[in-house]
Design a protein around this nucleic acid. Structure first.
Length: 642
DNA sequence: ATAGGGTTAG
């Protein structure tokens, strides 16, 4: 083996062509097949200029894999076959010794040019990156990806991209796409690589980048797989980015990426979660048109959508879908029943929930979720005894309560001011091998605060910290609500600041509390500024927010401002609910505008809203006792039934 | 790769 040492900077060679190359390096050449120095020099220059070296050694006709080049300060060269073997055997420390101060990028180039095994190159790539603590140029990364794609080493690409995406902060999608197309224009390889890039981004919680890559793939005409698109859609749904979900769905159709059952179910779920139920039905029809039948998951998703966002008569609509499902020979499962039971409970119709529960037992086994929904429903409707009965029933069936079960029942005791029993249940949690969650603590802290047991509340907060359960925004909301109730705004503000110091963000409930507090101080204008701040922060005000502010203006006698808030609320897609009407009716009564109040009452009834106890009290105290008989036809009887 | 349960605000 002959060595051809050159003095520094031969023939105008720039020593800093590579970042690690020092000017005082001596470049050594080693051509195992020939002793032709000229050949070696040409090869080196080509490599330095990043010209791809291919073919054979000029004089010996050996493949160039037998030629190795190093830029090393010592006279010791490296040999490609040896390196290959060391990489293959993963003898890293030996490899390190062998390479000494060689330019690892030059080695990489050589491995590529020598047509080495792609998996071997990948190994060296990863090792050198880690060992020298550097990031290889994007060009080499893309070259490697192409190399692997051509060898159909897809699982290797997947794993590689996973690591790449996790650590990549330098390269934008734009440069990755650009470099990838520069390195090779095999269309299929590029499509496969980009497809896996989308997936890798999604899996690493970089949904935004995944979406961006999806968009760019469209610009480049790369065809993505339905699997990656579904993962992207699923992540977008979880992050509540339904606008993007609709976009991706439409794009898939346009790009002729064939949507499957999963695609449709995910999109339907996304639409349901934000209450776009009609659109969800449209997608259900789309899928049927494509010859794909909704399955139990699709139907469950739709039923759940109606249960949670169906508005008036939602349980009837949910029931209609159940019938449609059965008519299409799709059998309801435990989850279907759980959804319905929870729906009836949340609709304050526990009786129907229990009926569905009994029906379910005919052919299916209720599980812990079933019991949790029912226990919670009963607790929220004051039926603590029945809830306890179900607790015993589930234990009898060998079903183990989980933390959700505990939380629901603890909440039930709290609502009945049975704090001793609530605490006993709390202390029992650990016996079952469970741990209290933030919700457990929040429930109890809130209840102690509400019942004026401040010492107990503080103690629980401390125990929460000791057990390393992080207080969340809800925890602080409980405290802020507590101090607002006590009129101690200074302390409320202190906790708000403390919350923000801990990096916890105010949520819509925090804002409602602050808006309510300002309104009670007669500062409704300032409260409205907080409402606008919510929009700026991307938080959506709920009915409660608008109703609270409306109530504030009504108390101040500013009906015009209150009505404006209603307009804004409806513009934002929130329909007036029962509380809205109660607030406005009462506001108008207080100002003696009984005729307008009566019109509002009629409007409310026309909209099918069911008057509640508060409505009744307003009508009785503010209208009837003042000699005004509301003109609400047959509804007066219903109102009087309270 | 798609579906279900628990806390805080009017």
């Amino acid at each position: 083996m002959a060595v051809f040492p050159y003095t520094e900077k031969p023939l105008g060679l720039q020593a800093n062509s590579y970042p690690k190359l020092n000017s005082n390096l001596t470049s050594n050449f080693n051509c195992t097949a020939t002793e032709n120095a000229e050949t070696s020099l040409v090869l080196l220059l080509m490599l330095q200029a990043r010209v791809h070296v291919q073919g054979h050694c000029r004089t010996c006709i050996r493949p160039c894999s037998s030629i190795s080049i190093s830029t090393s300060p010592s006279s010791q060269p490296f040999s490609l076959p040896i390196i290959s073997e060391l990489i293959a055997k993963q003898h890293w420390s030996e490899l390190k010794t062998h390479l000494k101060d060689s330019n690892f990028i030059a080695v990489l180039h050589q491995l590529f040019d020598a047509g080495a095994d792609p998996v071997l190159i990948l190994r060296y790539f990863s090792w050198s990156q880690k060992n020298f603590n550097v990031t290889h140029p994007l060009e080499l990364t893309c070259r490697l990806l192409h190399y692997l794609a051509n060898a159909k080493k897809y699982s290797k690409i997947r794993a590689f991209l996973d690591g790449f995406v996790r650590n990549n902060e330098k390269h934008s999608n734009s440069s990755i796409f650009h470099m990838l197309s520069m390195c090779g224009n095999q269309f299929c390889a590029n499509s496969v690589i980009i497809d896996m890039l989308v997936l890798a981004n999604v899996k690493n919680m970089k949904t935004r980048l995944g979406f961006e890559a999806f968009q760019r793939a469209g610009d480049y005409g790369f065809k993505l797989s339905v699997l990656s698109c579904n993962s992207l859609l699923s992540a977008l749904v979880k992050e509540n980015e339904i606008g993007y979900v609709e976009y991706v769905y439409k794009e898939m159709v346009r790009r002729r990426i064939e949507a499957d059952l999963f695609t449709f179910s995910i999109v339907i779920n996304g639409l349901c979660k934000v209450g776009k139920l009609n659109k969800a039905r449209d997608v259900t029809n789309d899928m049927k048109a494509w010859g794909i039948s909704p399955n139990v998951v699709t139907y469950n998703t739709l039923i759940d959508g109606y249960c949670k966002k169906g508005g008036l008569g939602k349980m009837h609509k949910a029931d209609a879908i159940l019938k449609e499902m059965v008519a299409n020979n799709v059998r309801p499962n435990e989850i279907t029943f759980n959804i319905l039971i929870d729906g009836f409970c949340k609709d304050e119709n526990v009786a129907s929930a229990v009926k569905v529960f009994e029906e379910m037992k005919q052919g299916l086994k209720p599980n812990v979720v079933t019991y949790n929904s029912l226990i919670n429903g009963l607790c929220c409707n004051g039926k603590l005894d029945e809830a306890c009965g179900l607790w015993d029933e589930m234990l009898g069936l060998g079903l183990k309560p989980n933390i959700v079960t505990y939380n629901a029942l603890i909440n039930g005791f709290c609502k009945k001011k049975m704090m001793k029993e609530a605490k006993e249940l709390f202390d029992d949690i650990m016996n079952g091998g469970l741990a209290p969650s933030a919700i457990t603590y929040n429930t109890l802290i809130d209840a102690y605060c509400k019942h004026g047991m401040m010492e107990e509340a503080y103690a629980l907060h401390n125990s929460m910290l000791e057990r390393r359960v992080s207080p969340n925004t809800s925890t602080f909301n409980c405290w802020i609500a507590c101090f607002c109730r006590q009129g101690n705004m200074e302390l409320a503000r202190k906790f708000l600041r403390e919350m923000e110091v801990r990096g916890l963000k105010a949520d819509p409930i925090t804002y409602n509390l602050l808006i309510d507090a300002l309104c009670k101080e007669g500062e409704s204008r300032k409260a409205e500024r907080l409402l606008n701040e919510m929009f700026k922060k991307g938080l959506s005000p709920s009915h409660v927010t608008y109703n609270t502010l409306m109530d504030g203006y009504c108390r101040e006698g500013n009906l015009k401002a209150a009505l404006n808030v209603r307009l804004q609320m409806e513009k934002e897609g929130n329909r007036a609910n029962i509380v809205t009407f109660n607030v406005l009716i009462k506001g108008h009564c207080m100002k003696g505008k009984l005729k307008v109040a009566n019109e509002l009452l009629n409007e409310m009834l026309e909209k099918g809203l069911v008057p509640n106890r508060t409505t009744y009290e307003i009508v009785k105290e503010e209208m009837m006792e003042k000699g005004f008989l509301p003109d609400i036809e047959g509804h007066l009887y219903n109102i009087s039934s309270f």
